[in-house]
Design a protein around this nucleic acid. Structure first.
Lengths: 117, 117
DNA sequence: AAAACACATGAATGATTATTCATATGTTAG
DNA sequence: CTAACATATGAATAATCATTCATGTGTTTT
């Protein structure tokens, strides 16, 4: 195997520069990865996800639980919906949200382990 | 066990409201979790981390690999340093950066699995 | 010692985005 | 049918943050 431990390319070594560029994660993948992690990058969405881990919850309940305006919650839910991380189920005048992605549950759990020291 | 599948608290049921609030992840933890995920929430940092997964890399190499200015890279490295996700080792006039946290490696891998469909 | 190099950093700028405000749609209750 | 309710959403505002610009510190080379 050709594992390199220390990388420090020389300014005028074009070949080494190109080799290094080839090792960077490609931009489209980096962007999609970043978008995924953005979902959990603010406390509001972290809290929303924390409530959806085990239950299906209606918007008004999230509003009550987080102590934020209905509009703010709705906008964040739309954000998560666009990323296909949550799904909405309409029932009468309520809309119930639930996690629609097990990876997020796993990321959340993994992150929590880290933060828990 | 007292698992609830569907949650929809009534406006005037104060007790249910309080019970729900108790289920939300507490703010300090949510903030630390959000901070952790923020590290991977933009392509630039995702790419930096991708290069540090296997190697120790100097700043100039990162600059070459990402095609960004030295200042931009340095600022992002400081960001990651402050979060204790990377460590810096000075050697002569070079500074080598490396991942200083295995959880991030795992989060990265987990996220990549998700994005890879 | 001077010049070139490697990196860091404060301040300014520009871009992104979370939240609010106002309002619209559809649903149930009276 | 009207009023109250539950949610959604576009536009405006406010806050955050990535990048650039200018410059500073320390190191190596000549």
């Amino acid at each position: 195997m050709d594992a390199i431990d220390i990388v420090c390319v020389n300014e005028d070594d074009a070949a080494a520069g190109e080799a290094l560029k080839a090792r960077v994660l490609d931009t489209p993948t980096a962007e999609r990865l970043a978008a995924l992690f953005t979902a959990l990058s603010i406390p509001t969405r972290v809290k929303i996800i924390s409530l959806l881990l085990e239950h299906e919850v209606c918007v008004h309940s999230l509003e009550t639980a987080l102590g934020m305006t209905q509009s703010a919650i709705s906008h964040q839910l739309r954000f998560l919906r666009d990323l296909k991380l949550v799904r909405a189920r309409k029932e009468g005048r309520h809309v119930y949200y639930a996690l629609d992605d097990d990876h997020v549950r796993q990321l959340f759990a993994q992150g929590l382990l880290h933060v828990a020291h």
